[in-house]
Computed example of a mutant assay.
Amino acid sequence: MKTSKRLELAISKLYTAFHNNTLNPECCQQCAVGNILDNTDSWKHLSDAHGSLKLNYIGKVHQSLGRQFNGYSPLELLKIEHIFLTACGFQLPLHYNNSKPEHPTNKDVLFNGLSAVIAYLCELDGVENVMDYTKLFKGNTKKTIQALV
């Protein structure tokens, strides 16, 4: 499957962060977008609230100028973060009064967020979801199971 450079880099960074325990939905440098943007938090100035899909003035200027950050537009970055936080179980936008998962850095919680983000990144680039494992189980189930054993 042919993928874009931005998709390969983003997936690599997210995968590394997940396995190195440096993926944290509550930190702008270690969340999905923070990791895609090399652990910087400058992207948080594109919106007024963490998890919002609405660009602020700065975000609108960057968007209208066609600015991209590691290959992604400001709107795409906000959508990536929104998907990640929602899949992790956060009520958005992030606020201390809003509900959140009991253990936000639990591997199961993070995996849900990671899977949702990777599905969206693949959709953006028009490729099949690289994490879709259902094809492994299509067809002759007995042969598939025997091949795995």
Rank of each mutant, 00 (worst) to 15 (best):
V33E: 01
F69K: 00
F69T: 00
D38W: 13
N20P: 08
T16R: 15
Y72D: 01
L55F: 09
A10M: 08
K13C: 05
N20Y: 09
A17R: 03
L9W: 12
S73R: 08
L75T: 15
G126D: 02
P101T: 09
L75G: 06
F90A: 00
V127Y: 08
V109D: 00
K135P: 12
Q68F: 05
T134G: 06
V33Q: 02
Y120G: 02
P93K: 01
Y15S: 10
N21T: 09
Q63F: 06
S64C: 11
N97A: 13
G71W: 13
V109P: 07
L136A: 08
K13I: 07
A17Q: 05
G126Y: 09
A147H: 14
G59S: 05
D108C: 08
G51S: 00
Y15F: 11
G59W: 02
I118Q: 03
Y133H: 14
N39S: 09
H95S: 13
A119M: 11
A10I: 05
L77I: 07
N70I: 06
L7C: 10
C28D: 15
H50K: 00
A87I: 08
L23K: 03
K135N: 08
S12Q: 12
Y57L: 01
G113F: 07
I83L: 02
I80F: 00
S52P: 13
L14P: 03
N70A: 15
V61Q: 07
G71H: 11
E128S: 14
Q63I: 04
G89V: 10
N39V: 06
Y15P: 02
L114V: 11
T3D: 10
D132Y: 06
P74E: 01
D41M: 02
L53R: 13
H103A: 08
Q91Y: 04
N39K: 15
T105V: 11
P101K: 04
T144N: 15
L110K: 04
K5G: 04
Y72W: 15
N21D: 14
A49N: 00
Y15W: 13
S64G: 07
E123C: 08
A87D: 00
A17L: 06
I36H: 03
A49I: 02
M1A: 14
Q30C: 12
D125I: 06
P74L: 02
P25A: 01
C28R: 01
T3V: 15
N140C: 14
C31W: 01
L9I: 12
L85C: 11
N20W: 13
K142I: 15
E8N: 02
G66Q: 10
Q68W: 05
A119S: 10
D41Y: 11
S115D: 00
L65F: 10
P25V: 13
Q30Y: 14
N21S: 09
F18W: 10
V33T: 04
H103L: 09
S4H: 07
